[in-house]
């Protein structure tokens, strides 16, 4: 773990050079989203009977929170991982020291988790300001968002280390992440999807994260379902790590 922390330190140090820009977008993004969806779209959606039981912004905000975890984690673990292997060769610099492949992998993953955690904290504060947190359990949406991040950053890092060229990464974002963002219950309940498609949505890690975050902020979480969600996300993160270690090793140890 000590080795992983030393690798982690590298990423935090490089991040210090650009944290200002990224903090601004971390604050601005949720505010823009919540304003557009809550005040704009919400006004249209909230007319008439209220099928969701809560205002649209209170419904959509935790979904966007979880999806933000996915997005930051995916962005950070796709091109930057490929870069560290192929372009900047940062991983090779690390490997010339006592650090091991596992340290290098875990150190980077810890950094992804930190990035998600910082953004999620800001986001959650914005949600509170918009009055969309209906329960004290909402605080648990924070670790849940970090877990969603890990459920993506680990398998995406595995994929990025394996990918033969960068077009694979663009394809993953376009055909994997964007559709997930739109159809995994972030903006509307998955039950509105036609049968067949609905099952696919249930299988995505994002849906589990969205559903859990939503029940936590709305105060409707149950133990049983929450544990299922957590287990599902942990399984994704765990399997991702195992595969990632293998694909890192394949690239780094020749």
């Amino acid at each position: 773990m000590d080795g992983a922390l030393r690798a982690y330190e590298h990423w935090v140090t490089s991040y210090r050079r650009l944290w200002r820009a990224s903090i601004v977008s971390s604050v601005l993004n949720p505010v823009l989203y919540l304003t557009a969806l809550g005040v704009g779209l919400g006004k249209l959606v909230n007319h008439g009977p209220h099928p969701l039981g809560v205002s649209y912004v209170a419904f959509v905000a935790p979904g966007v929170l979880a999806a933000t975890g996915m997005q930051i984690a995916t962005n950070e673990s796709s091109f930057p991982v490929m870069a560290a292997l192929r372009w900047t060769r940062t991983y090779y610099a690390m490997l010339a020291s006592p650090l091991r492949v596992r340290d290098i992998l875990i150190g980077h993953q810890l950094y992804f988790a930190s990035r998600v955690a910082v953004a999620a904290t800001i986001y959650l504060a914005a949600l509170a300001a918009f009055g969309t947190l209906h329960s004290g359990y909402a605080i648990f949406a924070l670790p849940v968002t970090v877990l969603v991040g890990a459920a993506f950053s680990a398998p995406v890092a595995a994929f990025s280390a394996w990918a033969p060229k960068d077009a694979y990464l663009s394809a993953l974002l376009r055909f994997g992440i964007v559709p997930m963002f739109l159809f995994s219950g972030t903006f509307f309940p998955v039950t509105r999807l036609p049968p067949g498609v609905r099952e696919i949505a249930y299988a995505t890690p994002l849906w589990h994260g969205v559903d859990l975050a939503r029940h936590l902020t709305l105060g409707t979480a149950t133990w049983g379902m929450s544990l299922v969600h957590v287990a599902y996300l942990v399984a994704f993160a765990g399997a991702g790590l195992v595969i990632a270690e293998r694909s890192y090793r394949k690239r780094l140890v020749l």
């Binding site: 590298h10 140090t13 490089s14 050079r17 650009l18 900047t88 060769r89 940062t90 090779y92 610099a93 010339a96």
Partner: peptide, 10 residues
């Protein structure tokens, strides 16, 4: 190493 792997952003 034969190929540089400095941290360009640092």
């Amino acid at each position: 190493p034969q190929l540089d792997n400095l941290d360009n952003e640092l």
